[in-house]
Amino acid sequence: MAGPRKRYSAELKAKIALEAIRGNKTANEIAAEYGVHPTQIAQWKKQALDGLPAVFSTRGPGQEKSEEDLTAPLYQQIGQLKVELDWLKKNQASSVEHKRQLIDPNDPQLSIGRQCELLGLARSSYYYQPVAVSEEDLMLMRLLDEQYTRTPFYGTRKMTNWLNQQGYGVERKRVRRLLRTMGLETIYPHPRLSQPGAVEQRFPYLLRNVEITTVNQVWSTDITYIRLARGFVYLVAVLDWWSRYVLSWELSITLDTSFCLEALERALNQATPTIFNSDQGVQFTSTEFVQRLQANHIRISWDGRGRALDNIFVERLWRSLKYEDIYLREYQNVKDVRNGIQAYFEFYNHQRLHQSLDYQTPAQIYRQR
Protein backbone atom coordinates (compact mmCIF):
# COMPACT_ATOMS: atom_id res chain seq x y z
CA MET A 1 0.00 0.00 0.00
CA ALA A 2 1.33 3.41 -0.98
CA GLY A 3 2.36 5.75 1.82
CA PRO A 4 1.11 9.30 2.35
CA ARG A 5 1.85 11.74 -0.44
CA LYS A 6 4.87 13.92 0.21
CA ARG A 7 4.30 17.63 0.77
CA TYR A 8 6.97 20.17 -0.09
CA SER A 9 7.11 23.70 1.27
CA ALA A 10 7.09 26.71 -1.01
CA GLU A 11 10.59 27.60 0.27
CA LEU A 12 11.96 24.18 -0.73
CA LYS A 13 10.31 24.35 -4.16
CA ALA A 14 11.81 27.80 -4.74
CA LYS A 15 15.27 26.59 -3.67
CA ILE A 16 15.10 23.59 -6.01
CA ALA A 17 13.78 25.75 -8.87
CA LEU A 18 16.72 28.15 -8.45
CA GLU A 19 19.13 25.20 -8.51
CA ALA A 20 17.55 24.08 -11.78
CA ILE A 21 17.66 27.57 -13.28
CA ARG A 22 21.36 27.90 -12.40
CA GLY A 23 21.99 24.67 -14.32
CA ASN A 24 25.13 23.66 -12.44
CA LYS A 25 23.79 20.18 -11.64
CA THR A 26 21.79 17.63 -13.62
CA ALA A 27 18.17 16.96 -12.74
CA ASN A 28 19.24 13.55 -11.40
CA GLU A 29 21.79 15.12 -9.07
CA ILE A 30 19.29 17.68 -7.74
CA ALA A 31 16.67 14.95 -7.32
CA ALA A 32 19.06 12.80 -5.30
CA GLU A 33 20.13 15.74 -3.13
CA TYR A 34 16.61 16.85 -2.19
CA GLY A 35 14.73 13.56 -2.44
CA VAL A 36 12.37 14.64 -5.23
CA HIS A 37 11.71 13.39 -8.76
CA PRO A 38 13.26 14.99 -11.89
CA THR A 39 9.76 15.54 -13.30
CA GLN A 40 8.91 17.75 -10.31
CA ILE A 41 12.12 19.72 -10.81
CA ALA A 42 11.17 20.52 -14.41
CA GLN A 43 7.67 21.53 -13.30
CA TRP A 44 8.89 23.83 -10.49
CA LYS A 45 11.50 25.41 -12.75
CA LYS A 46 8.83 26.27 -15.31
CA GLN A 47 6.54 27.69 -12.63
CA ALA A 48 9.38 29.86 -11.30
CA LEU A 49 10.26 31.20 -14.75
CA ASP A 50 6.61 31.87 -15.60
CA GLY A 51 6.11 33.73 -12.31
CA LEU A 52 9.18 35.97 -12.47
CA PRO A 53 7.50 38.79 -14.49
CA ALA A 54 4.91 39.20 -11.72
CA VAL A 55 7.70 39.92 -9.22
CA PHE A 56 8.63 43.09 -11.10
CA SER A 57 5.07 44.22 -11.83
CA THR A 58 3.90 44.27 -8.21
CA ARG A 59 2.28 47.55 -7.11
CA GLY A 60 4.47 49.61 -4.83
CA PRO A 61 3.45 50.87 -1.36
CA GLY A 62 1.16 53.87 -1.32
CA GLN A 63 -0.01 53.46 -4.90
CA GLU A 64 -3.72 53.66 -5.54
CA LYS A 65 -5.61 50.47 -6.26
CA SER A 66 -6.39 49.83 -9.88
CA GLU A 67 -9.85 49.15 -11.25
CA GLU A 68 -9.01 45.44 -11.34
CA ASP A 69 -8.18 45.53 -7.61
CA LEU A 70 -11.53 47.15 -6.81
CA THR A 71 -13.59 44.65 -8.83
CA ALA A 72 -11.67 41.53 -7.80
CA PRO A 73 -13.95 40.70 -4.82
CA LEU A 74 -16.88 40.37 -7.22
CA TYR A 75 -15.22 37.26 -8.64
CA GLN A 76 -15.91 35.49 -5.34
CA GLN A 77 -19.67 36.06 -5.69
CA ILE A 78 -20.41 34.79 -9.21
CA GLY A 79 -21.07 31.22 -8.15
CA GLN A 80 -19.23 27.91 -8.04
CA LEU A 81 -20.35 26.84 -11.50
CA LYS A 82 -18.83 29.83 -13.28
CA VAL A 83 -15.63 29.40 -11.26
CA GLU A 84 -15.32 25.85 -12.50
CA LEU A 85 -16.10 26.77 -16.12
CA ASP A 86 -13.56 29.59 -16.15
CA TRP A 87 -10.93 27.37 -14.55
CA LEU A 88 -11.57 24.62 -17.07
CA LYS A 89 -11.33 27.01 -20.05
CA LYS A 90 -7.89 28.17 -18.88
CA ASN A 91 -6.64 24.68 -18.14
CA GLN A 92 -7.46 22.56 -21.16
CA ALA A 93 -4.92 19.81 -21.69
CA SER A 94 -4.54 16.55 -23.59
CA SER A 95 -1.70 14.55 -22.04
CA VAL A 96 -1.77 13.10 -18.53
CA GLU A 97 1.50 14.85 -17.59
CA HIS A 98 0.16 18.22 -18.74
CA LYS A 99 -3.03 17.70 -16.73
CA ARG A 100 -1.00 16.84 -13.63
CA GLN A 101 0.94 20.09 -13.96
CA LEU A 102 -2.28 22.10 -14.11
CA ILE A 103 -3.54 20.84 -10.74
CA ASP A 104 -3.12 23.48 -8.03
CA PRO A 105 -3.28 21.84 -4.56
CA ASN A 106 -3.56 25.29 -2.94
CA ASP A 107 -6.54 26.50 -5.00
CA PRO A 108 -8.89 28.18 -2.46
CA GLN A 109 -12.05 27.38 -4.44
CA LEU A 110 -11.54 23.99 -6.08
CA SER A 111 -10.35 20.86 -4.31
CA ILE A 112 -7.78 18.55 -5.88
CA GLY A 113 -10.49 15.96 -6.46
CA ARG A 114 -12.74 18.47 -8.25
CA GLN A 115 -9.86 19.74 -10.42
CA CYS A 116 -9.06 16.16 -11.42
CA GLU A 117 -12.71 15.56 -12.24
CA LEU A 118 -12.92 18.68 -14.42
CA LEU A 119 -9.78 17.70 -16.32
CA GLY A 120 -10.84 14.08 -16.71
CA LEU A 121 -7.81 12.92 -14.73
CA ALA A 122 -7.92 10.07 -12.23
CA ARG A 123 -6.81 11.14 -8.76
CA SER A 124 -4.42 8.18 -8.67
CA SER A 125 -2.71 9.57 -11.79
CA TYR A 126 -2.21 12.92 -10.06
CA TYR A 127 -0.68 11.40 -6.92
CA TYR A 128 1.50 8.95 -8.84
CA GLN A 129 5.23 9.56 -8.36
CA PRO A 130 7.31 8.02 -11.17
CA VAL A 131 10.55 6.24 -10.33
CA ALA A 132 13.72 8.26 -10.85
CA VAL A 133 16.05 7.42 -13.74
CA SER A 134 18.11 4.40 -12.68
CA GLU A 135 21.81 3.79 -13.27
CA GLU A 136 20.87 0.98 -15.66
CA ASP A 137 18.64 3.31 -17.69
CA LEU A 138 21.43 5.90 -17.87
CA MET A 139 23.80 3.22 -19.17
CA LEU A 140 21.25 2.10 -21.79
CA MET A 141 20.64 5.73 -22.80
CA ARG A 142 24.36 6.15 -23.32
CA LEU A 143 24.46 3.12 -25.63
CA LEU A 144 21.35 4.25 -27.51
CA ASP A 145 22.77 7.76 -27.95
CA GLU A 146 26.00 6.42 -29.48
CA GLN A 147 24.15 4.01 -31.76
CA TYR A 148 21.69 6.72 -32.81
CA THR A 149 24.60 8.95 -33.81
CA ARG A 150 25.87 6.12 -36.04
CA THR A 151 22.48 4.96 -37.36
CA PRO A 152 19.78 7.63 -36.88
CA PHE A 153 17.53 5.67 -39.25
CA TYR A 154 17.17 2.76 -36.77
CA GLY A 155 13.67 2.48 -35.34
CA THR A 156 12.75 1.00 -31.98
CA ARG A 157 12.71 -2.55 -33.36
CA LYS A 158 16.26 -2.35 -34.70
CA MET A 159 17.48 -0.51 -31.60
CA THR A 160 15.97 -3.22 -29.40
CA ASN A 161 17.53 -6.00 -31.44
CA TRP A 162 20.88 -4.23 -31.44
CA LEU A 163 20.83 -3.95 -27.64
CA ASN A 164 19.84 -7.63 -27.37
CA GLN A 165 22.84 -8.55 -29.54
CA GLN A 166 25.06 -6.58 -27.16
CA GLY A 167 23.81 -8.74 -24.30
CA TYR A 168 21.15 -6.41 -22.85
CA GLY A 169 17.77 -8.13 -22.61
CA VAL A 170 15.48 -5.14 -22.97
CA GLU A 171 12.00 -4.87 -24.44
CA ARG A 172 10.95 -2.57 -27.24
CA LYS A 173 8.61 -0.64 -24.93
CA ARG A 174 11.52 0.31 -22.69
CA VAL A 175 13.68 1.36 -25.66
CA ARG A 176 10.86 3.56 -26.96
CA ARG A 177 10.51 5.25 -23.55
CA LEU A 178 14.25 5.93 -23.25
CA LEU A 179 14.47 7.38 -26.77
CA ARG A 180 11.58 9.72 -25.98
CA THR A 181 13.30 10.80 -22.77
CA MET A 182 16.39 11.73 -24.78
CA GLY A 183 14.33 13.53 -27.42
CA LEU A 184 15.61 11.23 -30.19
CA GLU A 185 13.39 10.43 -33.15
CA THR A 186 14.07 8.00 -35.99
CA ILE A 187 14.76 9.62 -39.35
CA TYR A 188 12.08 8.55 -41.82
CA PRO A 189 9.03 10.20 -43.43
CA HIS A 190 6.14 9.79 -41.01
CA PRO A 191 2.63 9.10 -42.33
CA ARG A 192 -0.19 11.68 -42.26
CA LEU A 193 2.18 14.62 -42.55
CA SER A 194 -0.68 16.89 -43.53
CA GLN A 195 -2.45 16.47 -40.19
CA PRO A 196 -2.47 19.75 -38.23
CA GLY A 197 -0.67 19.83 -34.91
CA ALA A 198 -1.59 21.57 -31.67
CA VAL A 199 -0.24 24.96 -32.72
CA GLU A 200 -2.02 28.15 -33.72
CA GLN A 201 -0.17 28.53 -37.02
CA ARG A 202 1.88 26.13 -39.11
CA PHE A 203 4.80 26.97 -41.39
CA PRO A 204 6.03 25.08 -44.47
CA TYR A 205 9.54 23.85 -45.18
CA LEU A 206 11.09 26.66 -47.24
CA LEU A 207 14.50 25.23 -48.12
CA ARG A 208 13.67 22.54 -50.68
CA ASN A 209 15.62 23.31 -53.90
CA VAL A 210 16.66 26.70 -52.50
CA GLU A 211 20.23 27.75 -53.34
CA ILE A 212 22.10 29.08 -50.32
CA THR A 213 24.54 31.75 -51.50
CA THR A 214 25.43 33.97 -48.54
CA VAL A 215 25.72 34.17 -44.78
CA ASN A 216 22.62 35.01 -42.73
CA GLN A 217 20.41 33.78 -45.54
CA VAL A 218 19.39 30.71 -43.52
CA TRP A 219 19.88 29.89 -39.86
CA SER A 220 18.77 26.65 -38.28
CA THR A 221 18.55 25.20 -34.80
CA ASP A 222 18.11 21.87 -33.05
CA ILE A 223 18.38 20.19 -29.65
CA THR A 224 20.53 17.18 -28.80
CA TYR A 225 20.98 14.99 -25.73
CA ILE A 226 24.34 15.03 -23.92
CA ARG A 227 25.07 12.26 -21.44
CA LEU A 228 27.11 12.74 -18.26
CA ALA A 229 28.43 10.38 -15.61
CA ARG A 230 25.38 11.01 -13.40
CA GLY A 231 22.54 12.18 -15.59
CA PHE A 232 22.19 14.14 -18.78
CA VAL A 233 21.64 17.64 -20.18
CA TYR A 234 20.22 19.09 -23.38
CA LEU A 235 22.14 21.29 -25.83
CA VAL A 236 20.63 23.72 -28.34
CA ALA A 237 22.64 25.56 -31.01
CA VAL A 238 21.93 28.13 -33.74
CA LEU A 239 23.91 27.58 -36.96
CA ASP A 240 24.42 29.64 -40.11
CA TRP A 241 23.93 27.31 -43.09
CA TRP A 242 26.26 28.99 -45.56
CA SER A 243 29.31 29.20 -43.29
CA ARG A 244 28.46 26.40 -40.78
CA TYR A 245 29.26 29.00 -38.11
CA VAL A 246 27.79 28.33 -34.64
CA LEU A 247 26.26 31.66 -33.67
CA SER A 248 25.10 30.66 -30.19
CA TRP A 249 24.37 27.69 -27.96
CA GLU A 250 22.91 26.93 -24.53
CA LEU A 251 22.67 24.02 -22.09
CA SER A 252 19.71 23.05 -19.91
CA ILE A 253 19.03 20.26 -17.44
CA THR A 254 15.36 20.22 -18.52
CA LEU A 255 13.80 20.06 -21.97
CA ASP A 256 11.95 23.39 -21.86
CA THR A 257 11.60 26.46 -24.08
CA SER A 258 13.51 29.05 -22.05
CA PHE A 259 17.04 27.91 -22.91
CA CYS A 260 16.14 27.85 -26.63
CA LEU A 261 14.93 31.44 -26.37
CA GLU A 262 18.18 32.44 -24.66
CA ALA A 263 20.22 30.95 -27.52
CA LEU A 264 17.99 32.70 -30.07
CA GLU A 265 18.40 36.08 -28.33
CA ARG A 266 22.20 35.81 -28.36
CA ALA A 267 22.21 34.89 -32.04
CA LEU A 268 19.91 37.80 -32.95
CA ASN A 269 22.23 40.18 -31.11
CA GLN A 270 24.80 39.42 -33.84
CA ALA A 271 22.67 39.53 -36.99
CA THR A 272 19.24 38.74 -38.45
CA PRO A 273 18.63 35.90 -40.94
CA THR A 274 16.22 35.88 -43.83
CA ILE A 275 14.95 32.37 -43.01
CA PHE A 276 15.03 30.50 -39.70
CA ASN A 277 14.63 26.73 -39.93
CA SER A 278 13.86 24.24 -37.14
CA ASP A 279 12.07 20.98 -36.51
CA GLN A 280 8.54 20.87 -35.12
CA GLY A 281 9.52 20.31 -31.51
CA VAL A 282 7.38 22.04 -28.89
CA GLN A 283 10.22 24.41 -28.01
CA PHE A 284 10.41 25.85 -31.54
CA THR A 285 6.66 25.83 -32.24
CA SER A 286 5.87 27.60 -28.97
CA THR A 287 4.15 30.98 -29.13
CA GLU A 288 7.11 32.75 -27.49
CA PHE A 289 9.65 31.38 -29.99
CA VAL A 290 7.50 32.05 -33.07
CA GLN A 291 6.62 35.58 -31.98
CA ARG A 292 10.28 36.41 -31.34
CA LEU A 293 11.10 35.49 -34.94
CA GLN A 294 8.09 37.29 -36.37
CA ALA A 295 8.99 40.45 -34.44
CA ASN A 296 12.21 40.56 -36.51
CA HIS A 297 10.35 39.86 -39.80
CA ILE A 298 12.13 36.53 -40.20
CA ARG A 299 10.58 33.91 -42.46
CA ILE A 300 9.91 30.70 -40.50
CA SER A 301 10.62 27.26 -41.94
CA TRP A 302 9.74 23.95 -40.27
CA ASP A 303 11.11 20.52 -41.13
CA GLY A 304 8.68 17.82 -42.16
CA ARG A 305 7.66 15.46 -39.36
CA GLY A 306 10.41 12.89 -38.78
CA ARG A 307 12.62 14.37 -41.51
CA ALA A 308 15.79 15.21 -39.60
CA LEU A 309 17.73 15.43 -42.88
CA ASP A 310 15.76 18.60 -43.67
CA ASN A 311 18.12 20.11 -41.08
CA ILE A 312 21.18 18.18 -42.21
CA PHE A 313 23.84 20.74 -41.28
CA VAL A 314 22.87 20.77 -37.61
CA GLU A 315 22.74 16.96 -37.62
CA ARG A 316 26.32 16.96 -38.95
CA LEU A 317 27.32 19.41 -36.22
CA TRP A 318 25.96 17.05 -33.54
CA ARG A 319 27.82 14.12 -35.07
CA SER A 320 31.10 16.05 -35.11
CA LEU A 321 30.63 17.29 -31.54
CA LYS A 322 29.87 13.84 -30.14
CA TYR A 323 32.57 11.90 -31.96
CA GLU A 324 35.27 14.54 -31.61
CA ASP A 325 34.54 15.62 -28.04
CA ILE A 326 31.65 14.16 -25.99
CA TYR A 327 32.40 10.46 -26.44
CA LEU A 328 36.14 11.02 -25.91
CA ARG A 329 35.94 13.19 -22.78
CA GLU A 330 33.40 11.32 -20.64
CA TYR A 331 32.26 14.49 -18.87
CA GLN A 332 31.36 14.07 -15.20
CA ASN A 333 29.16 17.08 -14.41
CA VAL A 334 27.38 20.09 -15.88
CA LYS A 335 30.28 22.49 -15.27
CA ASP A 336 32.73 20.22 -17.09
CA VAL A 337 30.50 19.67 -20.10
CA ARG A 338 29.70 23.40 -20.33
CA ASN A 339 33.41 24.28 -20.39
CA GLY A 340 34.13 21.44 -22.79
CA ILE A 341 31.42 22.43 -25.28
CA GLN A 342 32.54 26.06 -25.15
CA ALA A 343 36.10 25.00 -25.96
CA TYR A 344 34.93 22.68 -28.75
CA PHE A 345 32.79 25.33 -30.46
CA GLU A 346 35.71 27.77 -30.28
CA PHE A 347 37.80 25.13 -32.02
CA TYR A 348 34.99 24.29 -34.47
CA ASN A 349 34.39 27.93 -35.46
CA HIS A 350 37.97 29.21 -35.59
CA GLN A 351 40.35 26.28 -36.13
CA ARG A 352 38.61 23.21 -37.56
CA LEU A 353 39.04 23.12 -41.37
CA HIS A 354 35.98 22.12 -43.41
CA GLN A 355 36.41 20.33 -46.71
CA SER A 356 33.06 21.68 -47.93
CA LEU A 357 34.35 25.22 -47.21
CA ASP A 358 37.49 24.69 -49.32
CA TYR A 359 39.45 23.97 -46.12
CA GLN A 360 38.59 27.24 -44.47
CA THR A 361 37.05 27.65 -41.02
CA PRO A 362 33.41 28.67 -40.44
CA ALA A 363 34.57 31.93 -38.84
CA GLN A 364 36.60 32.85 -41.94
CA ILE A 365 33.60 32.34 -44.20
CA TYR A 366 31.19 34.10 -41.85
CA ARG A 367 33.43 37.15 -41.42
CA GLN A 368 33.70 37.58 -45.19
CA ARG A 369 30.15 38.92 -45.25
Rank of each mutant, 00 (worst) to 15 (best):
N311I: 09
P38D: 06
S286L: 11
L235E: 01
N311R: 03
R329D: 13
S9H: 13
I312Q: 14
L268F: 01
Q283F: 06
W162G: 08
W318N: 06
N339A: 09
R329M: 15
A10N: 14
T26Y: 03
A54P: 12
G79D: 05
Q43M: 08
E315K: 10
S301A: 05
A122K: 10
T213N: 11
N161T: 03
V199Y: 00
R319Q: 11
V238I: 14
L81N: 09
G155C: 03
S286P: 00
T361D: 09
K25E: 10
V215P: 00
I326M: 09
Y344A: 00
D310A: 07
D137C: 02
R5K: 12
P362W: 05
E117M: 01
L184M: 10
L353E: 11
A122V: 01
Q129A: 05
L247P: 01
I78E: 11
K90H: 08
S301Q: 00
Q63S: 13
N349R: 05
G169Q: 15
A17R: 04
A229Q: 12
G167C: 06
L81S: 12
K322W: 04
V236T: 15
L49Q: 11
S243G: 01
N349S: 07
W249P: 06
N269I: 01
R329N: 14
E136F: 07
V131W: 09
S125E: 06
P189T: 07
W87E: 10
N106L: 13
E64L: 15
D240Q: 07
G231E: 01
L143Y: 00
I30W: 03
T361E: 11
A263H: 02
Y205H: 07
P73K: 09
Q364N: 05
E64T: 14
Y168M: 04
A93D: 13
N161R: 14
W302Y: 11
D336K: 09
E185M: 15
A72Y: 12
P105C: 00
Q40S: 15
Y34S: 04
V83M: 14
R367C: 05
I16N: 00
R266K: 13
W162T: 13
L49R: 10
P105K: 05
L144C: 03
E29I: 03
E84S: 11
I112D: 02
M182I: 01
S134W: 02
Q355G: 04
W318T: 04
P273H: 07
S248Q: 02
Q80T: 09
E185A: 14
V236L: 00
D325Y: 07
E324V: 02
L353I: 09
G120R: 04
F153R: 14
